[in-house]
């Protein structure tokens, strides 16, 4: 196996992915990611010099519209599924002291 994922890397990925892993999950994730990266490394067999990365198959452009409100007040619909709300706001744990 060419790729080895160490604890520091998996902890960093956990921060990026906003996931908290148990020790057991962490060991499994290290193994899974290493084997996936080994597999993905096959792509290095291809010479892609001069090939432009293609994010969309068709040319996609920003779609603009006039800056006018068309959908009315949807705050009730927006808040309908909130785990916790107060009046017309989402409630989250305190973020600044």
């Amino acid at each position: 196996m060419a790729n080895v994922i160490d604890d520091a890397t998996i902890d960093y990925v956990g921060i990026l992915a906003k996931l908290e892993l148990s020790d057991e999950e962490k060991e499994q994730a290290k193994k899974d990611m290493a084997s996936m990266l080994d597999y993905i490394d096959q792509l290095n067999e291809l010479d892609t010099t001069g090939v432009e990365p293609m994010s969309h198959v068709f040319p996609v452009e920003n779609v603009m519209r006039e800056d006018v409100v068309t959908n009315g007040d949807m705050s009730e619909q927006t808040l309908f599924n909130a785990p916790e709300r107060k009046d017309t706001a989402f409630v989250v744990p305190k973020t600044v002291d």
């Binding site: 890397t9 998996i10 990925v13 956990g14 990026l16 992915a17 906003k18 996931l19 908290e20 892993l21 999950e25 994730a29 899974d32 990611m33 996936m36 990266l37 989250v92 744990p93 305190k94 973020t95």
Partner: peptide
């Protein structure tokens, strides 16, 4: 706190395959 809420929510809410792909994608 907020970050703990994010992390615990996602860790408890997502299954193993979803976590695997999110981590690979983040990497």
């Amino acid at each position: 706190g907020l970050h703990s809420m994010y992390k615990k929510t996602r860790s408890e809410g997502f299954g193993a395959e979803v976590k695997r792909r999110i981590m690979l994608g983040s990497f």
